[in-house]
């Protein structure tokens, strides 16, 4: 059994080395971009807005921004790696190997977790240095970070498998991922929204990832952390099953 996964382990290491070999683009650039958000939104709005009682806006914002970078980078890792491999043709090397669809899935999602966490930790460290950020429950923080990165890695994998060219992937990213991320409560609490948008936010799975993650920092959130965990876990199972079906059937990669 272990032998069956050794190929998958090699693929995981290769995927990690792939994004690490272009770390300026894949790790440092997203950290800098996120810190710009923090600088602009945090500094400008800090004194004018109190989301949770007794808390600066910057302190509220940091967990949301960390989760946003985790989600976007986990998505980018699997989706861009797959589409590049398809365009360059080097996905063939993996497809010719005895790596099982499950090991293939685990390797790609595993690497996306590593990248998501690497970027998230970078932003969080800057938050610790520049702002007074503490966490109530590191276990919840870590659980939501890993689970959300895995989920978005899996979503990126679906996008990478189904896309035939960079344009398709760009549409997926710009019309689905970015709007859902921005409307997930990264910059605000949904309690501040009108009733309809509050209600609509509950259909956005990214909201539960951000809200559960924020709970780990403050011990309070818009919805129960257990609800957030259940929804995020269910969404992860759903996208994982879709991936495994696509991979076992060979959709768009073995036809």
């Amino acid at each position: 059994m272990l032998m069956h996964f050794s190929g998958g382990w090699a693929l995981f290491i290769k995927e990690v080395r792939r994004f690490y070999s272009v770390a300026i683009q894949t790790i440092f650039a997203p950290i800098v971009a996120t810190l710009l958000y923090l600088l602009i939104f945090g500094q400008v709005i800090d004194a004018r807005l109190e989301v949770f009682s007794g808390m600066d806006y910057s302190q509220f914002l940091i967990p949301g921004l960390v989760m946003m970078t985790v989600l976007q980078n986990a998505f980018a890792n699997t989706s861009s790696s797959l589409i590049q491999s398809k365009m360059h043709g080097n996905l063939t090397f993996v497809l010719l190997s005895p790596i099982s669809p499950l090991a293939f899935y685990l390797a790609f999602v595993g690497a996306s977790i590593v990248r998501g966490l690497a970027v998230g930790i970078g932003v969080l460290m800057a938050g610790w240095i520049g702002f007074d950020v503490t966490w109530q429950s590191p276990a919840w923080v870590l659980l939501f970070a890993v689970l959300s990165a895995a989920t978005m890695g899996a979503v990126g994998m679906i996008a990478g498998i189904l896309s035939d060219k960079f344009d398709h992937l760009s549409a997926f990213q710009n019309f689905i991922i970015i709007p859902l991320t921005f409307l997930s409560g990264v910059f605000y609490s949904i309690q501040a929204l009108p009733d309809f948008w509050q209600w609509a936010s509950h259909f956005n799975p990214f909201f539960y990832m951000v809200d559960g993650f924020r709970y780990g920092f403050f011990g309070m959130a818009d919805v129960s952390a257990w609800v957030s965990l259940s929804v995020t876990l269910s969404f992860f199972v759903l996208v994982s099953l879709i991936n495994l079906i696509l991979l076992y059937k060979g959709v768009k990669i073995r036809d």
Partner: peptide, 11 residues
């Protein structure tokens, strides 16, 4: 590196 990676795929 490519040859090493490909070897890894085959365990």
């Amino acid at each position: 590196e490519l040859l090493q990676i490909q070897s890894g795929y085959f365990g």
